[in-house]
Design a protein around this nucleic acid. Structure first.
Lengths: 201, 201
DNA sequence: TTGGGACGATACGGTACGGTATCGTTCTGC
DNA sequence: GCAGAACGATACCGTACCGTATCGTCCCAA
């Protein structure tokens, strides 16, 4: 150990071992999925004794929840001074960057699978999803209020239209995810919606 | 031989027990995910003895592969006499109907998660995905050839644009998936692409 | 009717895992 | 420097699981 790290070791032993355990569990989770995060494997990888782990977490499930939570990156708010289209581009770029990251790319499938059969994970995932989708939803609402989108638009469907391709690209069809991809999706979205509004749908 | 069966019991004991095992394994897989398909659970649910199961499959993994394969519905080809837009609608409706089914809704997450860490599942899923995507791809190519789509279109991205929202709706955002949903996605796609072609992109 | 293949029941071995308990050691706050 | 908390190492229990082995039974066709 001797984690003489210069900055990221805030408190004493408790925080250090907790950090070591979380790092090991995260690595196991990302490389082997949920079933790979066994207590013995965390012990072997982290160097922290099993008794210590069970002094910090009551069960393996709680350790898993802590691990997942520690892996969720914060969602950046778009700057307030941006217009509608620029806010949309900003949000989509941030979204693409996060979901395209190796972490999210491996974490998402495990979460989606687990939330079907585990209520704790379901709550956790629900909370995280709401944070992301709520941001986009408010931007869309602002676009409607400002007249950039038809008032009768289905915001939920618009969210599917925007985020769906990103999700599919991450899950099923590995391809480079960059800002240009996000921008193209925004363009296609705006084109489809303006055309639909003009023609009369 | 001896087709005395009324309808769905083709052959003798071998086929019957095989069928019973596959049905039990499917039910377990759909209700509890991959980890729920244990050999003992299949034994308890199907009434088939463990020794019989291992006479039909060499290992639990092979049983799992058989189960997944038996759950994959065949992909219907669109009628050849349809035009481009109608073929697209037909395909999207079929796709939405399949992915919206309770079976696919529960099978997909398990497959997506497993294919990250299991090569056999990855091959299986790849094969299934190619069957679906290939159909759409050929329809898109036909649309390009017939002049309904710009020639410089990125077909892979178009597939993401069309199927992505469906996948997200199934995985992350449960909502009713009907023909109208599929039709709206086609409309939005066509609107975005024609507008992009007209404006010059 | 009869023989052989398929089946059911059960027991067993080996392994992996979650969680508990014990005890000696080391760090940390006072 | 000292008491007590935190830690490491290890052994242990119960369970669940995969896969094998054995043996008696039943079905099915010749």
């Amino acid at each position: 150990m001797t984690d003489q790290g210069p900055d990221v070791v805030p408190e004493g032993r408790v925080a250090r071992s907790r950090q070591a355990v979380l790092e090991a569990a995260s690595a196991l989770l990302l490389s082997g999925g949920l079933p790979a995060v066994t207590v013995d494997a965390v012990v072997a990888r982290s160097g922290v004794a099993k008794s210590t782990i069970y002094r910090h977490w009551a069960s393996r499930d709680e350790l898993l929840c802590s691990t997942v939570t520690s892996l969720l990156p914060p969602v950046p708010d778009p700057p307030a001074d941006l217009g509608f289209e620029d806010s949309l581009r900003y949000l989509m770029r941030a979204h693409v960057a996060q979901l395209g990251s190796p972490t999210a790319c491996r974490l998402l499938p495990a979460l989606i699978e687990a939330k079907l059969h585990d209520d704790k994970v379901a709550d956790l995932e629900q909370q995280m999803e709401q944070a992301r989708l709520g941001l986009l939803d408010s931007v869309l609402q602002a676009g409607i209020d400002a007249g950039h989108l038809p008032a009768d638009i289905d915001r939920e469907e618009a969210i599917l239209q925007l985020f769906g391709p990103v999700l599919m690209a991450v899950l099923a069809h590995p391809r480079p995810l960059d800002d240009a991809f996000a921008d193209r999706l925004v363009e296609l979205f705006l084109a489809s919606r303006s055309a639909a509004a003009g023609v009369g749908r």
